[in-house]
Design a protein around this nucleic acid. Structure first.
Lengths: 339, 339
DNA sequence: TATACAAAATGAAACGTTTCATTCTGTGAA
DNA sequence: TTCACAGAATGAAACGTTTCATTTTGTATA
């Protein structure tokens, strides 16, 4: 029959025959005489003592908890991001409070308040709505990709502009002459909008005529794509474009399936490069949905945590860009992939 | 210039001109005179007061926090499970501490201790190693799928046996005569092992000769599959099997791609049904990788949380099984899918 | 052996809640 | 007007830590 309630530091102190403060020091790694340290450690083991997080939090006002506000974890990009955030926090002895807000503004705000309430040490936000004005001023926060007006908040993102250029350059390198661009964008502004600017810049630079789908995201994306393809058929049924840069892997894969179903050969007739670098099962490096400009998810997550946990004295940069990179995923005529 | 530190209940009491206990009552919804309630509510708004979770936790020893221990979130099944757990907790005003243990035994144990340390209100575990003997006895816990010896712990799982039967029955219904079974199993026992029993039972029942791959999970799965296919070619190059029930969608999809690359037509020559019901992007109901016996993820998650949060007085069932269901995903000759 | 001083140990106070035994208030009956 | 009593309000104590001003211990020197 062990005592019902958990042992406290006081119990440990009594068991070890030392003072409360000495126990505290041992627990927090503050030097103490060898003799007492051993006595305390023995007592801790004997009583199976564990610190009470609440009592500690009450004194220190620190929780070792970081909230991640994200739409969901089922989208493969979010899933990978979450995974890497978790790992980066774990490395630092921090724990992750996961907040799936489904992109619903009210839920995002709710979670923001909850996080403040719960005295988390910081927030990493990947949100859809304009939460800028709801962020508690005292709470350390890092935002992925999004841009908020009227509020200086450290942001981390991929270098989407360069990534957009890179997509075009890769398509040209693999023999394309008429790369198009397709996007179904959200209404909320962020760094990822610059993929489009990169495409346009590269077209200008290499003397190409831009051609694209650029619509607000919709359930009707498929019929818009079908329409676009129909309008780009020559009389002999061949297509006027031979390359596709898709704003996301998601829509790129959709376009890919559509082309296949219409008898277009990929990558022989049309090559496709997406953006994001999402993986089918997430456990291997080589299971991309399509060839892609990959976001460096691991580094992005690491950077978010790094900025969040950096000393208060250091003013974090307002925007940190990390380079995106190309990876072969089956939808390009990539000579390097045929080794 | 607002005061630097957060206001406390004492500040609210002073502002409202009432006692500490009165403020506490208002905050916790305990009846108080109308007059005082209004005064306190006004003061809370005026000071922008928020309860300190630590002080409260110290008194109540409750955290409203539930830890989910899971290998990762990038595997689409785990991702979906995590998502639904989060939703089920949110509904009940609970929050989610996400612990990705990568299936590493030490990390799983670490997280288990951490959760106990952090006084979470409960744990939901989907683990790989035999953590049974490391579970703190006082901590409410629900386990998904896994079975632990020497420890009665409430478990939730899909009805894998019936699911295995269903897979065979569906293949037969769609015209298969020789369904095979393939699995690359983990060494740790769980309910999902019964998929195999279901296959064998159905074979017996319908007078079929079982034929299968049944290996320990390996990076070499692909070459084992290739081998198997080679050995099942007839002299005229046709295959001796016409249906595949894969223990997981993951390996089923791998087998599917392999068959395609070898010129086998799916579903014309061979039909494939997997297990799990994982989705490519997680945002639609119709983007399965392959036709599948789907685990009812949402209900499974809901059930886990329900059991975890049920009254202490109620003894939870030691094993709860929820039915899996078939869904068309392109690799079967499913008449219903051709409407 | 006596003294001085640094190092170690001590334990009371404080963190912000909840709880509960006590006091106060207001109303209706006498 | 006084009394009784239920309902409301009060605020001290407790939760289990950390912190820090104070005391004790141990060592080196005179």
């Amino acid at each position: 029959m062990t005592s019902r309630k958990a042992p406290t530091m006081k119990d440990v102190a009594k068991e070890a025959g030392v003072a409360l403060g000495t126990v505290s020091k041992v627990i927090n790694g503050i030097p103490v005489s060898e003799k007492n340290r051993l006595k305390v450690e023995a007592a801790i083991r004997a009583l199976n003592y564990e610190v009470n997080t609440y009592a500690r939090g009450l004194k220190t006002q620190k929780s070792n908890l970081v909230a991640l506000i994200i739409p969901n974890t089922t989208n493969p990009f979010f899933a990978a991001f979450t995974d890497h955030i978790e790992a980066a926090l774990y490395k630092r002895g921090l724990r992750l409070l996961l907040c799936c807000a489904d992109g619903i503004p009210q839920k995002e705000i709710d979670y923001l308040n909850m996080a403040a309430n719960n005295k988390v040490d910081g927030i990493i936000a990947l949100t859809y709505s304009d939460i800028g004005k709801f962020i508690p001023p005292s709470l350390p926060i890092v935002v992925f990709d999004r841009f908020f007006e009227n509020r200086v908040i450290p942001r981390v993102a991929s270098d989407n502009f360069s990534g957009g250029c890179l997509a075009v350059e890769k398509l040209l390198e693999f023999g394309c002459r008429h790369p198009i661009y397709i996007r179904f964008h959200s209404v909320f502004p962020g760094e990822s909008d610059k993929r489009r600017d990169g495409y346009l810049y590269a077209c200008e630079k290499y003397g190409l005529t831009p051609d694209y789908i650029d619509e607000v995201d919709t359930d009707d994306a498929l019929s818009i794509m079908k329409d676009f393809i129909r309008k780009h058929r020559r009389p002999d049924n061949s297509l006027t474009f031979d390359g596709v840069f898709s704003h996301t892997d998601y829509h790129g894969y959709m376009f890919y399936q559509l082309l296949l179903s219409e008898g277009v050969r990929v990558p022989q007739d049309v090559q496709i490069i997406g953006f994001d670098g999402i993986r089918k099962f997430g456990n291997r490096q080589d299971d991309l949905f399509i060839s892609s400009i990959c976001q460096p998810v691991e580094q992005l997550a690491e950077k978010c945590v790094e900025i969040l946990t950096s000393e208060d004295s250091v003013t974090p940069p307002s925007l940190t860009l990390l380079p995106a990179y190309y990876q072969y995923g089956g939808t390009t005529r990539d000579p390097a992939a045929l080794r």
